[in-house]
Design a protein around this nucleic acid. Structure first.
Length: 563
RNA sequence: UGGGCUGUCGCCAAGUGGUAAGGCACCGGGUUUUGGUUCCGGCAUCCGUAGGUUCAAAUCCUGCCAGCCCAGCCA
């Protein structure tokens, strides 16, 4: 190994998480001949969420880092919960996140025959038996957390009888629930997973992939290790709740010396405050119409975050920053927002859009005249070019950028005060008009012709700068203002029902006025509405004739009112 | 109450016997035609807790406390 490679390895190790350290050590020992093969094994029973993104970044990231491979494998062993729609969405989400799985997507269901054959072998070894007990009987005889279980009365059936019955199970000669196949391990084990776990159940159900070919379906514990083994997985990474299952994972594989034996490693799943990650709860939100769909921009699903306007790169960065460890914690949502802003600041196209307009008349500006200014598309990107912005006697500014009686350190417009209109002129407020309810209806200003472009060389201090649009040419656009879906850090913590903490104001739709250049936007494009926040042209609905924008996240706001 | 796992700054997270990295958040200040960005500075005498071993412990030992997971023919 060259010095250069040594250096690289040191660098690799320096930033490695505990799983990567295990892998580095395995490579050094030449375990698996130095190969690294991981997999992302979703069950196609729901949409992927940000928690899955953590696992995806981990598994695919490891493959990239160590020149290995990462498979996509659908763990479709339960036909009653799984659906083709989910398979499609999962594939799309992974691709969108920027990862490519090795070869074709795999399906646990394509291994059913091999698994069945191995189960027959297990029976022949005297290590599995057919149990006639009902589900209730099995549950009761399994014991409790503190009491040992009791052997099934069918535990000592002959190998021949077990073989015959198992075949009949496969051939559809029994009803659902009539019989199961169990591994014969130890009903007295302190680890409940080892108390003769069920490895096959009967389910007369059409499977999305195998149709009606099978009525016998393998359980997770039996299937998962075998799938990993068949695919030559070297490191089978899963979440903490499977730690108790590892002895079983190993037990099954240990019964077949000829099989490759992957190493299972567990890490803590992601929790994010102000949101939920449970597939069951997310499904509830969709089914009961608390949100519009799985990809509603308020959802923590990958497709929801995408529609919200969070770039894939921001999600990857987030996953990198939260790290990988075994401590279960809850990551602050502010970190995700930070990652979104960081990326968006780099790439977002700047435009001026007024969300809550109030008219300003520039009384000393000639009526009927229009002039144009150039504004950079992105000050963070020299190559982004400029766009033309029109200006005339009447403009709109943001209602909150004017106050009749402002507090100290209010840099915005107020009677007698001068501000800068971004890219345009300095204006000074001379008067204003309110309606019968005291609401500001119109503001009157004068402009300084010498400040064309928004600057003078006379050393004048103009602290405030406002965004604005030309009333003559402004285009109305639909803006969907999203806020967090839950008002509580840990939804449901207090009342027990997460629905009690839903934010009733998580969505409001407004018609805003935008500068004409907004028309040039493309679906999915990222924008920064100057001084307001980051928005995206809804990638599913935005067209030239339907200008819809979703709010991603506001700009960081450090303005504090001081009276 | 049985088994498994975890406890380092408000939130993540390095550190694995030699005297507490980093990021987010937060708080100051400079720059700024976005109160954005950027830049500078601050932010754990202490590592769940109580003892012990050692010249030296967040790191080793013992006890205790707290949290999470497991009793689906779900994954």
């Amino acid at each position: 190994m060259s010095n250069q490679e040594d250096l690289n390895n040191e660098k690799l190790e320096e930033k490695a998480n505990f799983i990567e350290k295990i892998i580095i050590s395995d490579i050094e020992k030449n375990k698996n001949n130095g190969a690294v093969v991981t997999r992302f094994p979703p069950e196609p029973n729901g949409y992927l969420h940000i928690g899955h993104a953590k696992s995806i970044c981990l598994n695919f990231g490891i493959a990239q880092k160590f020149s290995g491979k990462c498979n996509l494998r659908f763990d479709d062993t339960n036909p009653v919960k799984e659906d083709l729609e989910y398979i499609k969405s999962i594939e799309e989400d992974i691709k969108w996140l920027g990862f490519t799985w090795d070869g074709e997507a795999r399906y646990a269901s394509n291994y059913f025959q091999k698994m069945f054959d191995l189960a027959v072998e297990l029976i022949k070894k005297g290590l599995a038996y057919v149990d006639d007990q009902t589900a209730d009987e099995i549950r009761i005889s399994r014991g409790t957390l503190t009491e040992k279980g009791k052997d099934s009365p069918f535990r000592e059936r002959s190998i021949e009888e077990n073989l015959e019955l198992f075949l009949k199970m496969k051939n559809g000669e029994f009803e659902n629930g009539e019989k199961v196949l169990r591994a014969k391990i130890d009903m007295g084990s302190p680890n409940i997973n080892l108390r003769d776990p069920i490895i096959y159940r009967i389910s007369h159900e059409t499977h999305h992939n195998t149709g009606d070919q099978w009525c016998l379906y393998p359980m997770y514990d039996w299937a998962h290790g075998l799938e990993d083994s068949f695919e030559g997985i070297t490191h089978s990474i899963c979440t903490l709740e499977f730690e108790d299952h590892r002895p079983l994972y190993d037990w099954f594989l240990n019964q077949f010396e000829e099989l490759h034996h992957p190493q299972q490693i567990e890490f803590a799943r992601l929790n994010l405050n102000y949101t939920i990650m449970s597939k069951r709860k997310l499904l509830k939100l969709v089914q009961d119409n608390y949100v519009a769909s799985w990809d509603d921009p308020r959802m923590p699903t990958v497709s929801g975050l995408r529609r919200r306007g969070i770039p894939a790169a921001a999600i990857r960065e987030f996953c990198s920053r939260i790290g990988v460890a075994k401590t279960e914690g809850t990551v602050d949502y502010a970190l995700l927002e930070y990652c979104a802003r960081e990326e968006l600041n780099r790439v977002a196209t700047r435009r001026m859009v007024v969300l809550d307009p109030v008219k300003v008349v520039i009384t000393n500006y000639p009526e009927g005249e229009t002039e144009f200014f150039d504004g950079e598309n992105n000050p963070e990107d020299e190559n982004s070019g400029t766009r033309s912005i029109s200006f005339s006697r009447e403009i709109y500014i943001e209602r909150e950028d004017f106050m009749i009686d402002p507090p100290r350190k209010y840099f915005r417009l107020a009677p007698g005060k001068e501000i800068r209109l971004k890219h345009a002129y300095y204006i000074t407020c001379t008067d204003y008009k309110v309606d019968s309810e005291g609401r500001v209806e119109e503001i009157y200003c004068t402009y300084d012709p010498l400040s064309r472009g928004g600057w003078t060389d006379d050393g004048r201090k103009v602290k405030g700068t406002s965004h604005w649009v030309d009333a003559n040419s402004a285009i109305p656009v639909e803006v969907r203002l999203y806020d967090r879906l839950f008002v509580a850090e840990n939804p449901g913590k207090v009342t027990g029902d997460f629905l009690d903490d839903i934010n009733p104001d998580s969505l409001s739709v407004v018609t805003a006025y935008a500068e004409p250049a907004i028309k040039d936007g493309t679906a999915g494009e990222f924008f920064q509405f100057l001084r307001v926040g980051y928005f995206t042209a809804d990638y599913k609905e935005f067209t030239a004739g339907n200008l819809v924008f979703n709010k991603t996240v506001g700009l960081k706001d450090t303005f504090k009112v001081q009276r």
